[in-house]
Design a protein around this nucleic acid. Structure first.
Length: 597
DNA sequence: GTAGGGTTAG
């Protein structure tokens, strides 16, 4: 009888029988229940088994309830799992850990912490398994005080020497932005316990939290210490190069992977594709893409997104159709890349068609559509599109409308979008800057001042603009008007400006938002970080065939854009500039964005 | 019976 119930087919039969006859015979021993639990995957089955279990007087009921709980977590049905847990008599630490882990993994860090508190209140002693889950939850909550409190408990329970707990502590601090604390923990490890996973954990945490420079320094230190990188180390190192725009370093890593047979796989190759794309070299990206033995949906999406930001929307879209011909199913990131390709090229009709093909568009896809409509001048349509949304628009959606209103100088709609954006994301400075830009463009300096006053009052600070250039593997950083040790750069810039003026270049001072005289405005745009970077590139990179590659942390201004076009024409020198949104490939006085950005 | 590191966008 028991043997018959254990096969899945017979469970179906059991359920079927139940519907025909009132009460099928339930399993009578532990093995019977265990087998039933193992083969039941549906919530309804588990609930039936739970009900059956409650009616039996089995001595092993507790271990069966544990199994049932594990099954519920794997579905996952956290609410039901929690009810079951609360009904259990004195659950052991294993179960507490399992439930805390389940909350931490289900993106419910607050529930994980609350459960930890319940556990402590009932006097259950946490162990070395408990803290990795609790620390992950602290990191996800972005709560540094809580993280520090848990750290002190780790010390109290004498678990600070546990390698895994320590790695998790390190990751938590890095994610919380406390890089120094993360490094201190790393340094406190003996060289014996600094294993590859510990190195990788810190390097990848730095990469993912926007400290790519720290990640690369640590990567070099790891190699100096004689630890051989594996594919996971390489992914982080390559991603850091992508973030910083370090093409030379990225190429060097690629060469080493081939020559030294360092462990490569599709993750590493995807990171390389992205690095080439983010460094503005789609030629190298597509060469690698052709050579790749195995391509995942991420490989395709990276290439499509790469072509999109580099201004080659038509290649992006034809790659998208090739991908589908190859039978690769696009995911929501692929669609973001496709829509952004349409947006960068102003392909409104195509964008609408692709959007229409999506079964379950997310809020980011709506934001990209608003960007596409608004950027190409269909502001009212973009606004109606937002109003017709079936999901709640977020700050990104309204921000896209605000950005479009800034481009097309629509003060009224821009004001409306800004109100929504500031309500939803008061802490993001770039949106306030956009609003002040609209006011400035309309000459409303009092309103500009009000926005700035408000930013000061709320301690919201605009990110300082900078540009960077990589030379011989080193990154050189330039800030607006910075008078570093580079007198030659200013000299070069003056000479260049004179030549360009002779060709018809006039500084565009509309981008200067201060209400000042035009001479002062000219002085302000003269030393924008992009121009300093260009002058630096020209003085230090003599080979005319090599393009000057510049990374800008914010959007490039109209004047620097025009300036760069003139430079590319006057000197026959290509300039490749990555800004916050996209690439600008300047060649023979033209830009790949066709002045649409 | 439970634990640490990786790719696209945001």
């Amino acid at each position: 009888m028991i043997a018959r119930i254990t096969s899945p087919v017979n469970i179906c039969t059991l359920t079927h029988l139940r519907s025909l006859h009132a009460s099928p015979p339930p399993p009578t021993d532990k093995a019977g229940f265990a087998a039933l639990l193992q083969s039941a995957s549906r919530r309804a089955h588990l609930k039936q088994i739970h009900a059956l279990l409650l009616t039996t007087g089995l001595s092993h009921k507790n271990s069966l309830l544990t199994q049932l709980l594990l099954s519920l977590i794997s579905i996952p049905d956290m609410a039901y799992a929690r009810r079951l847990f609360d009904d259990m008599h004195k659950p052991r630490v294993f179960l507490w850990n399992t439930l805390i882990r389940a909350y931490a993994r289900s993106n419910l860090p607050g529930d994980a912490i609350a459960l930890y508190h319940d556990m402590r209140r009932l006097g259950v002693r946490p162990d070395n398994f408990t803290f990795p889950f609790v620390l992950k939850a602290c990191a996800d909550l972005l709560d540094v005080w809580l993280g520090m409190a848990v750290h002190s408990l780790v010390i109290k329970f004498r678990l600070v020497c546990d390698a895994i707990v320590r790695t998790e502590l390190m990751i938590m601090y890095a994610k919380l932005g406390a890089c120094d604390s993360a490094e201190n923990i790393f340094e406190s490890m003996s060289s014996g316990s600094k294993d590859l996973v510990a190195w990788n954990a810190l390097i990848s945490s730095f990469t993912q939290s926007g400290h790519a420079d720290k990640a690369l320094r640590l990567f070099h230190r790891m190699e100096s210490a004689g630890v051989k990188p594996d594919s996971i180390t390489l992914v982080s190192a390559i991603s850091s190069c992508a973030y910083l725009g370090c093409l030379e370093q990225g190429r060097r890593l690629h060469r080493r992977i081939k020559e030294e047979m360092l462990g490569s796989n599709v993750f590493v190759e995807n990171a390389l594709l992205d690095m080439y794309a983010k460094c503005g070299s789609m030629e190298e990206a597509s060469k690698l893409f052709r050579e790749m033995q195995q391509k995942s949906v991420v490989s395709w999406s990276t290439m499509i997104g790469g072509y999109a930001v580099n201004g080659d929307s038509h290649r992006a879209l034809s790659l998208f159709s090739r991908m589908q011909d190859d039978g690769v199913q696009p995911n929501h990131v692929t669609y973001l890349a496709v829509l952004s390709a349409c947006s960068h090229a102003g392909l409104v009709r195509e964008g609408k068609e692709y959007f229409g093909r999506m079964l379950d568009p997310k809020v980011e896809h709506y934001a990209t559509m608003v960007d596409l409509l608004g950027r190409s001048g269909h502001l009212e349509e973009a606004y109606s599109f937002i109003k017709s949304m079936s999901i709640e628009p977020d700050a990104g959606v309204w921000g896209a409308l605000l950005g479009a209103c800034t481009i097309h100088h629509d003060l009224e709609l821009g004001q409306l979008a800004a109100d929504e954006v500031l309500r939803l994301a008061p802490e993001i400075p770039s949106y306030r800057v956009l609003l002040s830009n609209i006011y400035a463009a309309s000459g409303r300096w009092d309103d500009v001042e009000k926005v700035r006053e408000n930013m000061r009052g709320n301690h919201v600070r605009k990110a300082a603009a900078y540009s960077s250039v990589e030379l011989d593997g080193e990154v050189y950083l330039f800030r607006e008007g910075s008078h570093g040790p580079w007198r030659e750069i200013y000299k070069k810039l003056d000479e260049l400006t004179t030549v360009l003026r002779g060709m018809g270049y006039e500084p565009i001072t509309g981008v200067v938002l201060h209400d000042v005289e035009s001479e002062e405005k000219e002085a302000a745009v003269r030393t924008h970080s992009e121009k300093l970077a260009i002058a630096f590139g020209l003085t230090r990179m003599k080979s005319a065939g090599t393009p000057i590659r510049i990374m800008k942390n914010l959007r490039v201004c109209n004047d620097c854009h025009t300036f760069s076009k003139y430079v590319s024409k006057a000197l026959g020198r290509d300039i490749i500039m990555r800004d916050k949104n996209r690439f600008h490939h300047f060649k023979d006085g033209e830009c790949s964005c066709r002045d649409f950005w």
